[in-house]
Design a binder for these strands. Structure first.
Lengths: 154, 154
DNA sequence: TCTTGATTGTTAGGTAGCCTAAATGTTAGG
DNA sequence: CCTAACATTTAGGCTACCTAACAATCAAGA
């Protein structure tokens, strides 16, 4: 299919080197993001989940797909959010098998607070970079998003 | 200290927007990296751990610091690697309290195999990007590494 | 209509990786 | 020596994943 993947060496070594460097950077990024967590606050997964909920309601399967996890894992998160009063499950009017998960006012407030704190903390680190570095970062973010799609839905 | 952090708005909103976009991209990257995992293979954490071991041996505390986890978590990983025959713990000749963790030949082979497979899979995705996109990605990787440092060791 | 297979979600049970607190052994300074 | 600091392991607990098995509902064809 892709000739560059079949060659014993050559063109491909650049791609594999980039892949290697990317993996290393992502490893660091994982620990970086972990350091943004705070104690009494929403966990990263809960925050991500809440942020995709609208007031119209999102189905459990859609939430799972957006998070990149299986349905039971999504259910687990939703139950926790519901216990915290940040989300509500209501029957889907169109399909009685399904459930619509909706964010509450408390949920909206919690998201805003967590986002504010995390962004402020990260902005502190970003402020120590040069303008050139920040520009490079900004240029690369859409590319990173695209790689996820290029890897295939799996 | 940093004036841009104290202003009610203005300069800072750019930083916070970048922070927000960065967090979103990293969220996707986490799921991306997770999709590189394969079944019978080394887990990501084990791979990272093995890769930092030399034949001279690394101490448990150093491994923990490099991984960004607490010492008992590192011990846990090391015990697993030892059971798999990929690493060995030997007494530190200079300090009897300490332990030197060394990679074995099987460990080296396992790292090489896992790296090869993961890089190939990721390179497949990278090959679908344009040259410009790949260049942007490459330029940003060192920046991402630097952000980790700028956030502080914590 | 009625049955059958696919779809949606939850429940049950298990694993991996992380944490804190407490225990063990070692070193080094007064 | 004695004590404080240090390196590691053990013990116990948490969270976020997973698969398998179940219940309910839908949709399609005999």
């Amino acid at each position: 299919m892709n000739p560059s993947l079949d060659r014993p060496d050559g063109d491909n070594s650049g791609l594999e080197q980039l892949a290697q460097d990317f993996r290393e950077a992502m490893r660091r990024a994982v620990y970086l993001v972990r350091r943004l967590d705070a104690d009494g606050e929403l966990a990263t997964t809960q925050l991500s989940t809440l942020k995709m909920l609208g007031t119209e309601g999102l189905r459990v399967g859609d939430i799972a797909r957006n998070l990149g996890v299986k349905v039971p894992s999504a259910t687990e998160q939703i139950i926790k959010l519901e216990r915290l009063g940040l989300a509500i499950r209501r029957p889907d009017p169109d399909d009685s098998r399904a459930v619509r998960v909706v964010i509450t006012d408390d949920g909206l407030a919690a998201v805003a607070a967590a986002d504010r704190r995390r962004n402020a903390k990260l902005a502190g680190a970003l402020s120590k970079l040069s303008d050139v570095e920040r520009a490079r970062l900004a240029d690369a973010l859409p590319v990173i998003t695209r790689i996820g799609g290029a890897l295939g839905p799996e």
